[in-house]
Design a protein around this nucleic acid. Structure first.
Length: 299
DNA sequence: AGGGCTGTCGCCTCTTCTAG
DNA sequence: CTAGAAGAGGCGACAGCCCT
């Protein structure tokens, strides 16, 4: 399993992680010697973790208007200094995401925590999630698809994010709900394990002063039905990222409506699979949201 | 206006890797 | 073993600059 940890990167990996085209990376190397990768005995470039770090730093400077030729004259220390300068100028988003990526590739919790502390000193958790974690998670999906990162990388990262959400959730969970006319029940369908969005939504709902019941993953509809006997008005919130699949999703939603939409209950749906839902035949009290922000606005 | 830089892209050829 | 994908690197095109 230790072999799962990637220590050598191809030029394609660097392209995926930095967003700089492989072609351009080669030209930068040729013209400016910004990176000098090792080669296999068949001449293929191999980069190590510090090359990746350097490229991510260079990318950041480049995005902020530095010329490559100028960056090329910088020493390693000068590059890091300039990067720090940019972060301190409030524009921390890209830097933070790059740091999180480094933490992920390196399985380094300390980088994660340090970067997070830096962000949280400047803004609210809400802002950190929206401006840093969400874009990062979105990118992780793409990096996973392109096999630049392994499931180990992705799990490592999402676990750390989940942990942070839980810490902040716990902080407000002990407060008594201020709005008691309805409760939110959060769950995921069978085999749906993408919890982060749902966890964060719980945090937002709690912030608004509502009571939440978090049921988590693999929750069959029948079990949700049990809950309806305990509370008068319930909003059921569910993420459908990969399950139920496109052939079953419409039937699944129909069953949810039949069993759960008593009285003034509502169903809120999110996630990729909602694209395949036939929106014409939905109940008035079933809502589909295309983004977390949209959902938060509705709370 | 003209002419270097600069960054990016497309196209081409040759080599290497890999899935079947 | 072979066909096709992917990488290396050369050359040229071009847009957007900065300078004189």
């Amino acid at each position: 399993m230790i072999n799962d940890i990637k220590t050598v990167f191809s030029i394609k990996d660097l392209e995926n992680l930095s967003g700089i085209k492989a072609h351009t990376i080669r030209i930068w190397e040729k013209r400016y010697k910004v990176l000098e990768p090792m080669r296999t005995d068949t001449n293929i470039r191999m980069y190590n973790l510090s090359s990746l770090q350097k490229l991510l730093n260079i990318t950041l400077l480049h995005e902020y208007g530095y010329k490559i030729s100028k960056i090329a004259t910088f020493s390693e220390e000068k590059i890091q200094e300039s990067v720090r300068e940019i972060i301190s100028k409030k524009n921390s988003q890209n830097y933070a995401i790059n740091s999180f990526k480094m933490a992920m590739m390196n399985f380094d919790q300390e980088i994660f925590f340090n970067t997070f502390d830096l962000l949280i000193a400047e803004k609210s958790f809400k802002e950190v999630f929206k401006e840093n974690f969400l874009p990062l998670l979105k990118e992780l999906g793409l990096l996973w698809q392109s096999q630049t990162i392994s499931p180990a990388n992705e799990h490592f990262m999402s676990h750390l994010i989940r942990q942070k959400i839980l810490i902040y959730t716990e902080g407000i969970q002990i407060l008594k709900p201020t709005k008691t006319h309805k409760v939110f029940v959060l769950s995921l369908p069978l085999n749906e394990i993408h919890q982060i969005g749902l966890l964060y939504l719980q945090y937002e709902i709690l912030l608004q002063g509502y009571k939440t019941i978090y049921l988590g993953e693999s929750m069959p509809i029948e079990n949700l039905e049990d809950i309806t006997r305990h509370f008068s008005t319930i909003t059921f919130v569910t993420f459908m990222t990969v399950q139920p699949d496109r052939t079953n999703v419409n039937q699944y939603v129909k069953t949810m409506e039949q069993k759960l939409l008593l009285k003034n209950n509502e169903i809120w749906l999110m996630g990729k699979m909602t694209e395949h839902i036939d929106r014409k035949n939905l109940s008035q009290r079933t809502f589909i949201f295309d983004s977390i922000e949209e959902t938060i606005n509705k709370i």
